[in-house]
Computed example of a mutant assay.
Amino acid sequence: MLRGYRIIENENMVERKQIRTHRKRRINKKWAKRYGFNVIPKKGIFVMGSTLIMHPTVAQIVRQQVGAV
Rank of each mutant, 00 (worst) to 15 (best):
M1F: 07
M1C: 09
M1Q: 11
L2S: 07
L2W: 03
R3F: 06
R3P: 02
G4K: 09
G4N: 08
G4L: 03
G4D: 08
R6L: 09
R6C: 01
I7P: 05
I7V: 15
I8D: 14
I8N: 12
I8L: 15
E9D: 09
E9K: 06
E9W: 03
N10F: 04
E11M: 09
E11A: 14
E11N: 14
E11I: 06
N12T: 08
M13D: 06
V14D: 08
V14P: 04
V14N: 10
E15Q: 12
R16K: 15
R16E: 12
R16V: 00
K17L: 07
Q18S: 04
Q18I: 03
Q18T: 05
I19D: 04
I19F: 01
I19K: 15
I19M: 09
R20Q: 09
R20V: 12
T21N: 09
T21G: 01
T21D: 06
T21L: 01
T21P: 00
H22R: 05
R23F: 03
R23C: 01
R23P: 03
R23H: 10
K24N: 14
K24P: 00
R25I: 02
R25F: 02
R26E: 15
R26N: 12
I27T: 14
I27P: 00
I27N: 04
I27W: 02
N28I: 03
N28F: 02
N28E: 09
K29F: 07
K29M: 07
K29Q: 13
K30W: 03
K30L: 14
W31D: 04
W31R: 12
A32S: 13
A32D: 06
K33D: 07
K33P: 00
R34Q: 13
R34K: 15
R34C: 00
R34P: 00
R34E: 13
Y35C: 04
G36F: 02
G36P: 02
G36M: 06
F37I: 01
F37Y: 15
F37W: 13
N38D: 14
V39C: 06
V39F: 06
V39G: 04
I40K: 12
I40L: 10
K42H: 09
K42M: 14
K43A: 14
K43R: 13
K43H: 08
G44H: 05
G44Q: 08
I45Q: 08
I45W: 11
I45E: 10
I45V: 15
I45D: 08
F46G: 02
F46C: 03
V47I: 15
V47F: 15
V47M: 15
S50D: 14
T51V: 15
L52C: 04
H55C: 10
H55K: 10
H55M: 10
H55Y: 09
P56H: 02
P56S: 04
T57E: 12
A59F: 01
A59H: 02
Q60S: 12
I61D: 11
I61N: 07
R63G: 02
Q65T: 06
Q65I: 04
Q65E: 11
V66H: 01
V66S: 01
A68M: 05
V69D: 10
